[in-house]
Amino acid sequence: MLRDARLVASKDLRVEATSRVLTTQVLPFALLVLILFGFGISPDQQVISGAGEGTERVAILEKVAPGLFWLAVLFSTLLAIGRSFAIESVDGNLDALRMAGLDPAGVFLGKMSAVLAELLVLELVVGLGCFALYGPPLAHPVLLVTTVLSATLGIAAAGTLYAALAAGLRVRDTLVPLLVLPVLAPVLLAATLATEAALFGPDGDGWPWALLLGAFAVLYTGAGILAFGTLVEES
């Protein structure tokens, strides 16, 4: 299983290394989304933050930076998982994968790992973009890293599972967002709250959410390992 996973993951990453679709198209798209958020939510608008004597006026963009970051990641995820299965859906590749006798669980883990690696790179750049554009503080780096890792693992696992469900269909591009986004809604929720705590503190508020993200990641990785064979199998 792990051998097959490594094989498929390195193949997917090699395809990306040559084609550079994610770095030259999806990454700029994600950064563009960050700028568009600035247009949608005026950078001058402020909210009153804190309670009692400690109130201060903070730019809305800074306050909602965590949510915007994860929204940008979610939209990019749709493109990344679409790409991950687009390369398999042409020229009989899906059939060849079925013929190869690879362990379906291994194929799932491989494709998931490749998406995970690609998303992590994307998040690094988009995250730096967020700090640059929205200027939030960073109170608890450890919580931030934990949140990003566990949330991204969950996103990659659920995304790969649902993209496989729509693999080979003509309506794939329109169906996948409908299926994936409600599933990832809890991830958006938990990741945003955990990131808020990591940026603005206190980190005690964030750890339970990071834990929930970890549970989601484990659950969906398990579901993918179990279900992938049924999904890619033709009748």
Binding site: K11, R14, V15, T18, S19, I87, V90, D91, G92, N93, D95, A96, M99
Partner: peptide, 14 residues
Amino acid sequence: VGLLGHGTALYDDL
């Protein structure tokens, strides 16, 4: 078994 179908099952970018 080995099947050579209509598709060549090759990744364009590799």
